[in-house]
Computed example of a mutant assay.
Amino acid sequence: MPADVLDFSDPAFVADPYAAFAAQRAAAPFVWHEGLQAHVATSHAAVSAVLRERRLGRIFAERTPTADWETFNWLHADSILDSEPPKHTRLRRLVAGAFGRGHVQRLAPRIEQLAARLLDEATDGNDTFDIIEAYAEPLPVLVIAELLGFPDLDRHLLRPWSQAIVKMYEVDRTEAQEIEAREACREFAAYVHELAAARAKSPGEDLLTDLVQIREGSDKLSERELIATAVLLLNAGHEASVNGFGNGLHSWLTTGRAPIEVTEDASVEAAVEEFLRHDSPLQLFERTATADLDLLGQELTTGQKAIALLGAANRDPDVFADPDRFDPNRTPNPHLAFGLGIHFCIGAPLARLEMQIALRTLLTRYPDVALAEAVRRPTFVLRGFEHVRVSPRG
């Protein structure tokens, strides 16, 4: 059966793709999609196979004309996300070495302070507030800025840059959005270049300093690799945390508010995993065949694409009992929201920590928080809400 029930141009499908995912999964969990010109995986097993198959690579194709897209192209070509072994192995080893110096763990008290401050500001004199704009969105930007050591006065620049760049990952972007993305890439790269040069002369106690200084023998990150890593950490980390929290909170508030014991770490951790599973922030991950291969009975030729639909995998009834039900106590919860294999999200521990602290802080202060209004973004790949307005006191 062709993947004709998956109509990525249909606003109704983009708004709620899960029934179509279920129909496609039941009919053919790995099948050719004519519109996308790719083989599409919708089951947990098929998505896992696509993500683990080493003959399917993350191959970045440069955009043209190269003079217009130069910075955008190298920011991707020199990043962990868009490279393959041996380059990917080398980059991930160096970046993981910098991450492994306790940066994530040291941030927990600071994340708690930031979350509390944002809630203070959001609820000061307000009967309702937009939890995306006032809480879920600024928190990870502030955290990543803290992680990298970006000066306080410059942190307002980061969110607009990230929002402009990530629009390039949608299938229906406009020419105006492409122009904005190219400009954001140039400005962001130039900013990180200057900041990294300053850290080389005057080191700090931040991840950017460690990325500048990290060495393994004679190997180190090139200037472009360092800049691409910093940009990726903001873009990917920001989107995963914002949309994961917003989507999950909306699911919880609209499906009966099953108890979340905020005084128990295990309960908060389980709830966050369900936030990530039930309405996944990243829906699509693309791979390209680097050789002819047979995968799950489908013949792929070199250059053909395979697409892993992560949100579909995370609603697979063969893996998750009653998969459409939001269950904050679901265990085990082997969701694929952060991917799998060599491209498993390197920032997953930080995203989880941010979301756990954000959820615990919110529900400790406002256990009766209630939904007032929600407006979903008209995007598929990065799934989230424009606005989730809540009443903090019910």
Rank of each mutant, 00 (worst) to 15 (best):
L118N: 09
A98L: 09
A134S: 13
A196P: 00
L94R: 06
E180Q: 15
H88R: 07
V171F: 12
I165S: 07
A115D: 13
Q213E: 14
I179A: 15
P85G: 08
W161T: 01
S162A: 14
A190K: 11
K201V: 00
D124M: 08
A190I: 07
P203E: 05
E187P: 05
V166Y: 00
L119Q: 11
Q163A: 11
G100L: 10
A200T: 06
H156N: 08
L207K: 01
A98F: 07
D210W: 03
L195D: 09
L118R: 12
Q105L: 15
L142I: 00
A200M: 12
P151E: 05
A200N: 03
I111R: 13
T89G: 13
R199M: 02
L153T: 05
D154I: 03
S162G: 14
T209K: 08
S83Q: 13
E187V: 15
H193G: 03
A184F: 12
Q113L: 14
E175Y: 04
R110T: 14
A98Q: 08
G204F: 08
I179F: 12
V95Q: 09
Q113N: 13
V212H: 02
R186G: 09
Y191E: 07
V192K: 06
L207A: 01
I132N: 03
V166W: 00
L158T: 01
K201N: 10
T128G: 05
F99M: 12
V143P: 04
F99T: 06
E121F: 03
H88S: 10
A181K: 10
T209Q: 01
L81Q: 13
F129I: 06
D124I: 02
I144W: 00
A196G: 07
Y135L: 09
R106P: 05
L91K: 10
D152F: 07
D172Y: 11
I165G: 10
A184I: 03
L94G: 08
P138F: 02
L147S: 00
F150A: 12
Y135R: 05
A176S: 14
D127G: 14
D130Q: 07
R92I: 05
G97I: 07
E187S: 15
G149F: 04
T89R: 11
L208Y: 10
A136L: 06
G204P: 09
V192S: 09
V143M: 00
P85V: 11
L91D: 02
Q177A: 15
E216V: 04
